[in-house]
């Protein structure tokens, strides 16, 4: 089975900081992959390179077997590659509803009127229904994260890249989020989820990969990976700077 999303020998450095040192990654269709790693490991940058907002120094990005390395972000989005931003990037002056309408209409190339009811349902699913007509700039950080998720889903993605959406949630909210992500997955969407909230990942993903020093140092069954000594050591580091 061909990978739905693949990164091949991706390298990237910011000045002296090497964030990707020949990374290979492949996501199978329907798979949910979790990525962990210390702060500054380059996880977010990896999403940037996958979605086209960050140019890799070298290497290839493939989507459903086709090379997309040279495609701009908007084309990748329309192909079905959606992301949520770790630092939420709302359209602050627009309403929450309009934010989602933008993603639905342009991310999936649909007429505006045809997306309205889908967007309203999505706001419901993401717990934003009562804030539909609020200015997105006035949302709390938590609601901004919900909006990131709603917007990404509105583009009808085949691959969904989630960047730390569970941080700061209460136990109950986290359970709801996990249920939502499992639902999305059940609809056939492949997922990569970057997350520090490890128990949320363990409840959701099929595979866990650890990014450290510009490379994946472990990848495999989530429970096995999380127990490995090397990972435990890195996580001491995370605990220290969290």
């Amino acid at each position: 089975m061909p990978a739905i999303l693949a990164l091949e020998s991706i390298a990237k450095r910011f000045g002296a900081v090497v964030v990707a040192d020949g990374i290979d990654l492949s996501l199978n269709e329907g798979e949910a992959l979790g990525i962990i790693g210390p702060n500054g490991a380059g996880k977010t940058t990896l999403f940037g390179m996958a979605t086209g907002t960050v140019k890799p120094d070298s290497g290839k990005v493939l989507f459903a077997g086709k090379e997309i390395t040279a495609l701009p972000p908007e084309s990748r989005c329309r192909l079905g590659l959606a992301r949520s931003f770790q630092i939420p990037q709302p359209f602050s002056g627009m309403t929450v509803f309009e934010n989602v309408v933008v993603a639905a209409a342009f991310g999936n190339n649909e007429r505006e009127k045809t997306v309205y009811s889908r967007c309203a349902d999505l706001l419901e699913r993401c717990g934003l229904a009562d804030k539909a007509n609020k200015r997105a700039g006035g949302l709390t950080l938590l609601d901004r994260k919900r909006l990131e998720l709603a917007r990404a889903l509105a583009t009808k993605p085949r691959v969904l890249l989630l960047d730390e959406v569970a941080g700061g949630l209460t136990e109950h909210e986290c359970t709801t989020l996990i249920a939502l992500i499992k639902d999305v997955r059940a609809e056939g969407v492949s997922i990569i989820w970057i997350e520090h909230v490890v128990h949320a990942l363990l409840a959701t993903v099929d595979r866990l990969a650890v990014l450290h020093g510009g490379k994946f140092i472990a990848s495999g069954d989530p429970h096995t990976v999380i127990k490995s000594a090397e990972v435990a050591e890195i996580y001491m580091g995370i605990a220290a700077d969290a």
Binding site: P73, E74, P90, F91, S92, G93, F106, R151
Partner: peptide
């Protein structure tokens, strides 16, 4: 119009506009 929706999104956040399928 539809273009206006894109334009207002661009006004607020170009990176997000691009990432949500708008040809900025």
């Amino acid at each position: 119009s539809r273009h206006g929706l894109a334009l207002t999104a661009i006004r607020d956040n170009e990176v997000a506009a691009q990432s949500n399928g708008i040809d900025v």
